[in-house]
Simulated scan of single mutants.
Amino acid sequence: MKDSTALSQKAHETTSFYHHKAPLNADACWYLVDQAKHPEVLRLLFEHDPAPVYDLPYIHSEYREQAHDGPLVIQPTTRQSEEWLNGWLTEGKALALQGLQLTLEKIRNHLVSLNTVRAPHGDSLFRYADPATFGSLGASLSPYQRLRVLGPVTAIHGHYAGAGWSLVKDQSQAVSSELAELCSQPLVLTRENIAAVERYRRHLLATSLAQGNGLADDLVSSWFQQLIELSAPNEQALIEGAGLLVTQGFTRVLSEDELTTVRKTRQGADWSDTLETLATLTHSQEGT
Results as ranks from 00 to 15, higher is better:
Leu278Met: 02
Ala155Arg: 15
Leu281Gly: 11
Leu114Lys: 04
Leu244Phe: 04
Leu111Arg: 04
Ser255Glu: 03
Ile107Ser: 04
Ser4Arg: 15
Arg43Thr: 14
Leu245Lys: 06
Ser208Trp: 04
Arg118Asn: 14
Ala232Trp: 10
Gln185Pro: 02
Val117Arg: 03
Gly164Gln: 05
Val33Gly: 00
Thr103Val: 09
Cys183His: 06
Arg191Gly: 08
Arg201Thr: 05
Gln80Gly: 00
Gln145Cys: 02
Leu254Lys: 09
Leu238Trp: 08
Val188Asn: 03
Asp69Gln: 15
Leu111His: 05
Tyr128His: 15
Glu235Trp: 01
Ala51Cys: 00
Leu182Asn: 08
Thr261Trp: 13
Ser184Gln: 15
Thr288Cys: 08
Gln98Lys: 14
Glu91Gln: 14
Pro52Met: 02
Lys10Ser: 15
Leu275Glu: 04
Gly151Arg: 05
Ala67His: 08
Leu147Thr: 03
Arg127Pro: 04
Gly99Ile: 02
Met1Leu: 13
Gln171Asn: 11
Leu24Tyr: 01
His157Glu: 08
Gly287Ile: 04
His20Gln: 15
Cys29Val: 01
Glu286Tyr: 08
Glu276Lys: 12
Pro76Phe: 00
Ile74Thr: 00
Glu65Met: 12
Glu65Leu: 13
Ala132Ser: 15
Ala51Phe: 00
Ile239Leu: 14
Leu44Ser: 12
Ser208Asn: 13
Pro131Thr: 09
Asp270His: 12
Gln75Val: 01
Gln248Ser: 13
Val197Met: 13
Lys37Thr: 05
Val188Met: 07
Gly151His: 06
Leu281Trp: 11
Leu254Ala: 11
Glu198Phe: 09
Glu229Asp: 15
Val153Asn: 05
Lys169Pro: 00
Ala232Ser: 15
Val168Cys: 02
Leu182Gly: 08
Val41Lys: 03
Gly212Cys: 04
Thr78Cys: 01
Ser272Pro: 03
Phe46Pro: 02
Met1Gly: 15
Pro76Ala: 03
His60Ala: 12
Ser172Leu: 05
His203Ala: 14
Ser172Gly: 07
Tyr144Met: 11
Pro52Leu: 00
Gln211Ala: 10
Asp257Ile: 00
Ala67Ile: 03
Lys106Asp: 09
Val149Tyr: 07
Gly212Ile: 05
His38Met: 10
Lys93Ser: 06
Glu286Asp: 14
Ala242Phe: 03
Val112Lys: 07
Gly138Ile: 05
Ser136Met: 06
Thr14Arg: 13
Thr5Gln: 06
Gln145Asp: 04
Arg191Ile: 02
Glu276Leu: 12
Ser8Lys: 07
Tyr63His: 06
Ser136His: 04
Tyr54Cys: 12
Ser142Glu: 14
Gly138Pro: 05
Arg118Tyr: 07
Gln285Phe: 03
Ser142Met: 10
Leu205Lys: 03
Asn109Ile: 00
Trp165Asp: 10
Gly214Asp: 03
Thr90Gly: 10
Gln236Leu: 12
Pro152Asn: 08
Ala196Thr: 08
Ala206Trp: 07
Glu240Cys: 01
Val73Ser: 04
Phe126Ile: 05
Gly214Val: 02
Arg108Asn: 15
Gln75Ser: 08
Gly164Ala: 14
Leu125Glu: 08
Gln75Tyr: 00
Asp273Gln: 07
Thr78Lys: 01
Arg127Gln: 13
Ala26Trp: 01
Pro76Cys: 01
Gly158Pro: 02
Leu254Pro: 06
Ser231Cys: 08
Ala22Leu: 13
Asp217Ser: 08
Ile239His: 11
Val149Met: 11
Trp30Met: 01
Lys169Val: 01
Arg191Pro: 01
Leu24Arg: 00
Gln66Lys: 14
Phe250Glu: 05
Gln66Asp: 13
Tyr160Ile: 02
